[in-house]
Amino acid sequence: MIERIVYNIIQVAVVVAFAPLVEGVTSRLKEILQSKRGPSIFQPYRDIWKLLHKDEIVSEESSWIFRAAPYVAFAAPVFVALLIPVLTRYPLFFAFMGDMLGGGFVLALGGFFTSLAAVDTANPYGPMGASRTRMVGFLAEPVFIVVFLTVSFVAGSTIPYIVQTRWVTPIANFFEPSHILLLIAFLMLILAEDGRIPVDSPSGQFELAMIERSKSLEYSGRGAALMKWAGAMKFFVLICIFLNVLVTPWGLAQGMGFGEVLLAIPLVLLKVFCFVLVLVYIESSLAKLRLFRITEFLGAAFVISVVAVITQLSEI
């Protein structure tokens, strides 16, 4: 009992501590691919540290939502990290609190508050980014629903710990067409949800073209640090759901031993690194889509997930 609580806290600590590193590695790799040297992989930590020590300026016109949003956005991925398998194959102490849908709702709550806060200050760019995020969000929603429907239909459960073992027992399940199609659809979703290149440019500095980033433009000091950190953690949590629940549970700790759980940390980071390599390749080989072409991108993701359902239904 007590060790399950300890492991759960370690799991959350891993998400909180390594999320900025993943972001740093991603941007560094992207710069290297463009024949530049790029910032250090620890740059996000330095940014967050610097921002935490700066004064915070809050607009007089804003309400409590603006002040509360960074904390909600920060807490949401931390809470989801309690529920999902990050390091272990077996459910930990707090995992009973929610299944995959519950985790999805909590993540959406963070996004909802960020959008509200962007509208709150009446900065012209914030509401624009918020409405665009909502547009991407409602286009992504059917894909989410179909993906989770298929996954829970295949595994007979919405608990991530049951779903993940389904794909590798027996190993032939891994090559099921519905599995591969679901992976493709969910990968496209991650790109859209996190504002990656075909949908939004994460390193862009041009406010008119921003989707995800313009929502936190008004924040300074501690609020900005929390928003930045929260964004990195949301990305990390999405990758963990993708890699550990939907791809395979390889590399996760199987036994209850303390050493095994500690060994899982570098293995999971290695998996995340492989994913980041694929992501950087996608981001570097595609151009950003025009805003109204995002429907095509997510429409394709939707059709892929529907095909996954059909192939799954027809085989049984």
């Binding site: 027996p170 032939a172 090559f175 067409p177 519905s178 095909v307 192939t311 085989e315």
Partner: peptide
């Protein structure tokens, strides 16, 4: 074998 079948299904999906 089931692996051949699964591979064929995957090819079909792609």
């Amino acid at each position: 074998s089931p692996v051949l079948f699964a591979l064929d299904a995957l090819t079909g999906a792609l």
